[in-house]
Design a binder for these strands. Structure first.
Lengths: 219, 219
DNA sequence: GTTGTAAGATAGTGCCGGTATCCACGTTGT
DNA sequence: ACAACGTGGATACCGGCACTATCTTACAAC
């Protein structure tokens, strides 16, 4: 297929596809002539993955390139690629965490038996940064207990998700499945959590009118 | 305290505080003279909340203003404010969802007994949009079963979080606690989920060398 | 009084994710 | 054969966003 068809099939503006090609996010098509290039299903799938990460996950174009490079590097193991992707799609900028919070995080990791986590994992560092934020001047705190409770639920979810992955398909397809699944199901869960808040908080603070209006009194 | 002190105490550049004042995110201080205004702890707490939402939650300044307005509107109930905030801090742009996906979502909500969710809840609509994305051309699908599994875990989390909130404090403090808690604990959970992936996926695909290197073979 | 700094307003900056335009040429319909 | 269209490829441009810098005026503390 030609670029324009690729763009149309992925429902992405042609100019954007060209931009992605320029930026090296998308491998160039097979040139069939001086002003002609052919793209295949691989490109289409890749493009869809990139758009998912960008639109749902909010991943920056710079980081998308890193992801694309990792996906294309056949010398990396699947797990290796996944850790790299996890580092790169982690929200927020790189921040440093104080050692005290890192200790808290490591204690939680230890309690869960999560010894497969790399010490340099971005998620570990970011979590520590959040913990120190929580334990800072604000009204909230992050105790080992509540963190471990959270980790327990996260463990169930992560287990289930890892088990759900179809490991029979080949590398590239598997990776695409895992990468997109990771970001979109992350958001699915977050939305469900918010919906849960909405329901349970409503139940707790007394039911509003059935027509959907809300009492004006405070709680 | 004066603006400069406010800025310093919240660890925010003075120029940014002025910007927030300009944008109406932060109520003006009490004017004690033509070129003098006094700020108090309320302003400081508000500023901290805003920075949390912005830096951790990635909430845009426009939406921050909506949040601030809702927090200041004393005629709104706590629950009312929280739903508004939930709508506004939901990630991604407003999108339309096809009725079919909405039905899927509603079925899940029904299965959970979450009848406290407003039909116009942003989260409900966004979730439907995600579901239609998942059931689109990509390799992933969103069955009622897995969504309900997710919702079950989300329910546990949401219950616990609602129960954890300290309902004895007064309105403004309560709201600040809930708003910030919602966004930062959301992220805490997401990070833990990713860490869980890292561990469980590593366990599943065979342990790499203990020195942290990874085998070069694919899985 | 002098000096330092506050408040308030206005204009400018840097980045990011595209978007638009242009060109030279191959493909295609007739 | 020939003209019109659309292609790959390159370069320049744009709009939004979150700040940031500067400038003016005036008061407060010494």
């Amino acid at each position: 297929m030609l670029v324009s068809e690729l763009a149309e099939r992925a429902d992405v503006p042609l100019a954007t596809v060209k931009y992605y090609l320029r930026e090296g996010l998308l491998p160039a098509g097979e040139t069939t002539g001086p002003r002609r290039a052919e793209y295949d299903e691989c490109h289409l799938r890749r493009l869809r993955v990139l758009r998912m990460l960008r639109e749902v996950g909010g991943v920056s174009v710079t980081n998308l390139r890193l992801v694309a490079d990792a996906l294309d590097d056949e010398t990396r193991s699947v797990h290796d690629v996944m850790t790299l992707v996890a580092d790169v799609i982690a929200p927020g900028p790189t921040i440093e965490a104080d050692p005290e919070s890192l200790d808290v995080v490591d204690e939680v990791l230890g309690a869960m038996g999560w010894d497969g986590v790399r010490p340099q994992s971005m998620d570990r560092l970011r979590l520590a940064a959040l913990v120190s934020l929580l334990n800072g001047p604000g009204p909230l705190g992050a105790s080992i207990e509540v963190l471990t409770y959270y980790a327990g639920l996260a463990d169930q979810l992560a287990r289930a998700e890892v088990a759900l992955v179809d490991h029979t398909v080949e590398r590239s397809e598997l990776l695409e499945q895992m990468v997109t699944g990771s970001v979109v199901y992350g958001q699915v869960f977050e939305l469900l959590r918010q919906l849960g808040h909405e329901h349970h908080h409503q139940v707790r603070t007394g039911a509003p009118q059935p027509d959907g209006t809300v009492p004006t009194a405070h709680a």
